[in-house]
Amino acid sequence: SDIKVHVGDITVELHNVSEEFARLVEEALRLGLNEEQAKEWAHKALH
């Protein structure tokens, strides 16, 4: 599904992702990663 993740003043739109993936992206953003890094990190975490 499509999910918007908000962290501080950052909003990341995720398309066709699981809630778990979105949660991992949100966690990575909170750790200070940028959007691209957060998506990559979440992807690796799920595989």
Score class of each variant (00 low, 15 high):
residue 1 S to E: 12
residue 1 S to P: 10
residue 1 S to W: 04
residue 1 S to F: 15
residue 1 S to C: 07
residue 2 D to P: 13
residue 2 D to L: 14
residue 2 D to T: 15
residue 3 I to K: 08
residue 3 I to E: 06
residue 3 I to G: 05
residue 3 I to Y: 13
residue 3 I to N: 07
residue 4 K to G: 09
residue 4 K to W: 04
residue 4 K to M: 11
residue 4 K to A: 12
residue 4 K to I: 15
residue 5 V to E: 06
residue 5 V to K: 04
residue 5 V to C: 04
residue 5 V to A: 04
residue 6 H to P: 07
residue 6 H to K: 10
residue 6 H to D: 08
residue 6 H to N: 13
residue 6 H to L: 07
residue 6 H to T: 15
residue 6 H to V: 15
residue 6 H to R: 11
residue 6 H to M: 10
residue 7 V to I: 10
residue 7 V to A: 08
residue 7 V to W: 15
residue 7 V to Q: 06
residue 7 V to F: 14
residue 7 V to C: 04
residue 7 V to D: 06
residue 7 V to E: 06
residue 8 G to A: 06
residue 8 G to M: 03
residue 8 G to H: 08
residue 8 G to S: 06
residue 8 G to W: 02
residue 9 D to T: 12
residue 9 D to W: 03
residue 9 D to V: 10
residue 9 D to N: 14
residue 9 D to Q: 12
residue 9 D to F: 06
residue 10 I to Y: 08
residue 10 I to W: 07
residue 10 I to K: 08
residue 10 I to R: 07
residue 10 I to V: 13
residue 10 I to N: 07
residue 11 T to I: 14
residue 11 T to P: 03
residue 11 T to K: 09
residue 11 T to F: 10
residue 11 T to D: 07
residue 11 T to G: 03
residue 11 T to W: 10
residue 11 T to N: 04
residue 12 V to E: 04
residue 12 V to T: 06
residue 12 V to F: 02
residue 12 V to L: 07
residue 13 E to W: 03
residue 13 E to V: 15
residue 13 E to S: 13
residue 13 E to Y: 03
residue 13 E to I: 15
residue 14 L to M: 08
residue 14 L to T: 05
residue 14 L to G: 06
residue 14 L to A: 04
residue 14 L to W: 02
residue 14 L to D: 05
residue 14 L to S: 04
residue 15 H to S: 10
residue 15 H to K: 11
residue 15 H to V: 11
residue 15 H to G: 09
residue 15 H to R: 07
residue 15 H to M: 09
residue 16 N to S: 08
residue 16 N to L: 05
residue 16 N to E: 08
residue 16 N to I: 04
residue 16 N to Y: 06
residue 16 N to P: 06
residue 16 N to V: 05
residue 16 N to M: 06
residue 17 V to D: 05
residue 17 V to M: 07
residue 17 V to R: 05
residue 17 V to Q: 07
residue 17 V to H: 08
residue 17 V to A: 10
residue 17 V to P: 06
residue 18 S to F: 07
residue 18 S to I: 05
residue 18 S to N: 08
residue 18 S to V: 06
residue 18 S to R: 09
residue 19 E to Y: 13
residue 19 E to F: 14
residue 19 E to L: 14
residue 19 E to Q: 15
residue 19 E to H: 14
residue 19 E to A: 15
residue 19 E to S: 13
residue 20 E to L: 15
residue 20 E to V: 14
residue 20 E to C: 08
residue 20 E to H: 12
residue 20 E to N: 10
residue 20 E to K: 12
residue 20 E to Y: 14
residue 20 E to F: 15
residue 20 E to A: 15
residue 20 E to S: 11
residue 21 F to Y: 15
residue 21 F to S: 00
residue 21 F to Q: 01
residue 21 F to D: 00
residue 21 F to T: 01
residue 22 A to G: 07
residue 22 A to H: 05
residue 22 A to E: 03
residue 22 A to R: 08
residue 23 R to F: 08
residue 23 R to D: 03
residue 23 R to H: 08
residue 23 R to Y: 07
residue 23 R to C: 05
residue 23 R to S: 08
residue 23 R to T: 07
residue 23 R to K: 13
residue 23 R to P: 00
residue 24 L to M: 09
residue 24 L to V: 02
residue 24 L to N: 02
residue 24 L to F: 11
residue 24 L to T: 02
residue 24 L to G: 02
residue 24 L to R: 08
residue 25 V to K: 02
residue 25 V to S: 00
residue 25 V to E: 00
residue 25 V to N: 00
residue 25 V to D: 00
residue 25 V to L: 06
residue 25 V to Q: 01
residue 26 E to T: 12
residue 26 E to I: 13
residue 26 E to M: 15
residue 26 E to L: 14
residue 26 E to A: 15
residue 26 E to V: 12
residue 26 E to C: 12
residue 26 E to K: 12
residue 27 E to C: 10
residue 27 E to L: 15
residue 27 E to H: 15
residue 27 E to K: 14
residue 27 E to N: 07
residue 27 E to G: 05
residue 27 E to Q: 15
residue 28 A to G: 12
residue 28 A to H: 02
residue 28 A to S: 02
residue 28 A to K: 01
residue 28 A to D: 00
residue 29 L to P: 00
residue 29 L to R: 04
residue 29 L to N: 01
residue 29 L to Y: 03
residue 29 L to G: 01
residue 29 L to Q: 02
residue 29 L to H: 02
residue 30 R to T: 10
residue 30 R to Y: 10
residue 30 R to K: 14
residue 30 R to P: 00
residue 31 L to K: 10
residue 31 L to T: 08
residue 31 L to Q: 11
residue 31 L to H: 10
residue 31 L to N: 10
residue 32 G to D: 02
residue 32 G to M: 01
residue 32 G to C: 02
residue 32 G to F: 01
residue 32 G to E: 01
residue 33 L to A: 04
residue 33 L to K: 06
residue 33 L to E: 01
residue 33 L to H: 07
residue 33 L to C: 06
residue 33 L to M: 15
residue 33 L to D: 00
residue 33 L to V: 02
residue 34 N to L: 04
residue 34 N to H: 04
residue 34 N to W: 02
residue 34 N to C: 02
residue 34 N to T: 14
residue 34 N to K: 07
residue 34 N to V: 03
residue 35 E to D: 06
residue 35 E to H: 07
residue 35 E to L: 15
residue 35 E to C: 06
residue 35 E to F: 14
residue 35 E to A: 13
residue 35 E to P: 10
residue 36 E to N: 10
residue 36 E to Q: 13
residue 36 E to W: 10
residue 36 E to A: 05
residue 36 E to D: 14
residue 36 E to F: 11
residue 36 E to I: 10
residue 37 Q to D: 13
residue 37 Q to V: 03
residue 37 Q to T: 05
residue 37 Q to P: 01
residue 37 Q to S: 08
residue 37 Q to E: 13
residue 37 Q to K: 09
residue 37 Q to H: 07
residue 37 Q to Y: 04
residue 37 Q to W: 03
residue 37 Q to C: 07
residue 38 A to K: 00
residue 38 A to T: 00
residue 38 A to C: 01
residue 38 A to L: 01
residue 38 A to M: 00
residue 38 A to H: 00
residue 38 A to W: 01
residue 38 A to Y: 00
residue 38 A to N: 00
residue 39 K to V: 12
residue 39 K to Y: 11
residue 39 K to D: 02
residue 39 K to C: 05
residue 40 E to I: 09
residue 40 E to D: 11
residue 40 E to V: 10
residue 40 E to Q: 13
residue 40 E to C: 07
residue 40 E to K: 12
residue 40 E to M: 13
residue 40 E to H: 12
residue 41 W to T: 02
residue 41 W to N: 02
residue 41 W to A: 05
residue 41 W to Y: 14
residue 41 W to L: 04
residue 41 W to V: 03
residue 42 A to Y: 01
residue 42 A to H: 00
residue 42 A to L: 02
residue 42 A to N: 00
residue 42 A to C: 01
residue 43 H to L: 13
residue 43 H to Y: 15
residue 43 H to C: 12
residue 43 H to S: 10
residue 43 H to D: 06
residue 43 H to R: 13
residue 43 H to W: 15
residue 43 H to G: 07
residue 44 K to M: 14
residue 44 K to E: 09
residue 45 A to M: 15
residue 45 A to Y: 15
residue 45 A to T: 12
residue 45 A to V: 15
residue 45 A to E: 11
residue 45 A to C: 08
residue 45 A to S: 11
residue 45 A to P: 00
residue 45 A to R: 14
residue 46 L to Q: 07
residue 46 L to A: 07
residue 46 L to S: 06
residue 46 L to Y: 12
residue 46 L to T: 07
residue 46 L to C: 03
residue 46 L to M: 13
residue 47 H to T: 12
residue 47 H to K: 13
residue 47 H to Y: 08
